[in-house]
Amino acid sequence: MTALSVKNIWKEYGQQVVLENVSLEIAPRSFVALVGPSGCGKSTLLRLLLGQEKVTRGTILLDGTALPDEPGPDRGVVYQKYSVFPHLTVLSNVMLGPEMQAGRIWGRSFGAARRALADTARAMIAEVGLAGSEDKYPAQLSGGMQQRLALAQALMMQPRVLLLDEPFGALDPGIRSDIHRLMLRLWNELPMTVVMVTHDLREAFTLGTRVVALGRTRTLPEDVMRYGAAITKDIDIWPPRKAGASTIFQTEYALGWDDLTPHGAATGRPDQRTET
């Protein structure tokens, strides 16, 4: 059984080929990290999985059925920015999804249903470590807290697939490792498949069960847009991580064992200078 099945997809914008014959089978409950150089189509692939854009050729199946043409509640998303609604408090942001699902006319719930939902939302807010900030607006939160809020908001819908588009790219290293731990715990506890786009290899190997690299396999110097990106590397993490099961290491994740400092330096992260 496959959660997501990408079969021979192409994505073209006019003359420009972005993705070229990409196929990918994603097992349920896996955590796939998509990496690759800037502009190689990682985010495009994510938007295709989300349903925000349509493939030019090929098919994408979700649990064996064709993906709907537009985004829906079965696929949650967290972007690097603009993932939460600035006009709603933390609590309202988290309650928004279920409220809109229940009330199709006003997008609000009332009375006992609302109180029950607020309790669930508070539990979720506490789960992502935002307890005490329920009445704040997103502008009053730090970047890391906003991303926690975006996660809580998306997870309230209990999506089968959670799509992350460089969600932690703008965060400080310390805050980032905190939120990595949170992300791993949520992935372990909730029945969902995660696909994450990142430009940070260390992050990809820290979180993923599988790292998929995209890149252009052939280029035409006089017409760079002629060929699109394809999958260049597909690495299963060893020892295998399994959602809900501990690895042979009894920690959530052992700091340092997958330290890819040279890669970090290669991607130009200033917090990881190496003496060479």
Binding site: L50, P71, L96, G97, G107
Partner: peptide
């Protein structure tokens, strides 16, 4: 991104209009 996010939160066009766009 906000509009797409609202879609993943099960909003219809109408709900996007009154809960996301109108207040902003």
């Amino acid at each position: 991104e906000q509009i797409v996010k609202a879609e993943t939160l099960s909003a219809s066009s109408w709900l996007i209009a009154i809960r996301i766009v109108l207040p902003q």
